[in-house]
Amino acid sequence: MDEALNTAALLLVAATATLAVLCRDPERQAVALSVFGLALTVLFLVLQAPDVALAQLVVGTALTPLLILLTARKVRRGPAAGGSGGPGERADRGGPEPGTSGRRTRERR
């Protein structure tokens, strides 16, 4: 019975790891990573390591996918409006165009 449970847990981990690797969309990848973390938690419980299983449950199933989702949201949304002019600030908010000295030139007709 122990061997069958170990094999089933290992197959579950292998299947969910493959699912996480094959996902291309970051949101789906985060969900797949959460399921993978849950499968690893089950494996650690089967292998009689409850302390490692608890840590995996918190970090691998909850925190890491949450950070991935928040990062994907931030990247898709772009920089915050009304920035301080630091790195990532867009030039069309009053600053000079990239590659110019900032001086205005007259247009000749």
Rank of each mutant, 00 (worst) to 15 (best):
D2V: 10
E3W: 05
E3R: 14
E3N: 11
A4Q: 14
L5K: 10
N6W: 08
N6L: 08
N6E: 11
T7G: 01
A8E: 07
L10M: 13
L10N: 08
V13P: 03
V13H: 03
V13M: 02
A14D: 05
A15L: 14
A15P: 06
A15I: 09
L19S: 13
L19R: 08
V21H: 05
V21E: 09
C23F: 12
R24P: 07
P26F: 04
Q29L: 15
A30G: 10
A32P: 09
L33S: 02
S34I: 01
G37M: 03
L38V: 11
L38F: 06
L40W: 09
V42M: 13
V42P: 01
L43H: 00
F44I: 03
V46W: 00
V46R: 08
L47K: 04
Q48W: 12
Q48K: 13
A49L: 14
A49W: 12
D51A: 12
D51F: 10
V52E: 03
A53V: 06
A53E: 01
A53D: 00
L54N: 07
A55C: 10
Q56M: 04
Q56Y: 00
L57D: 04
L57F: 11
L57P: 02
V58P: 01
V58S: 09
V59R: 05
G60C: 09
T61A: 15
A62M: 14
T64Q: 15
P65F: 00
P65I: 00
L66T: 12
L67M: 10
L70M: 15
T71G: 07
A72M: 07
A72Q: 07
R73F: 03
K74F: 10
K74E: 11
R76V: 08
R77F: 07
R77Y: 02
G78V: 04
G78F: 04
A81L: 07
G82F: 05
G82H: 01
S84G: 14
P87A: 12
G88M: 04
R90F: 12
R93I: 10
R93N: 15
P96I: 08
P96M: 09
P96E: 04
E97D: 11
G99W: 02
G99N: 08
T100P: 01
S101T: 13
S101N: 08
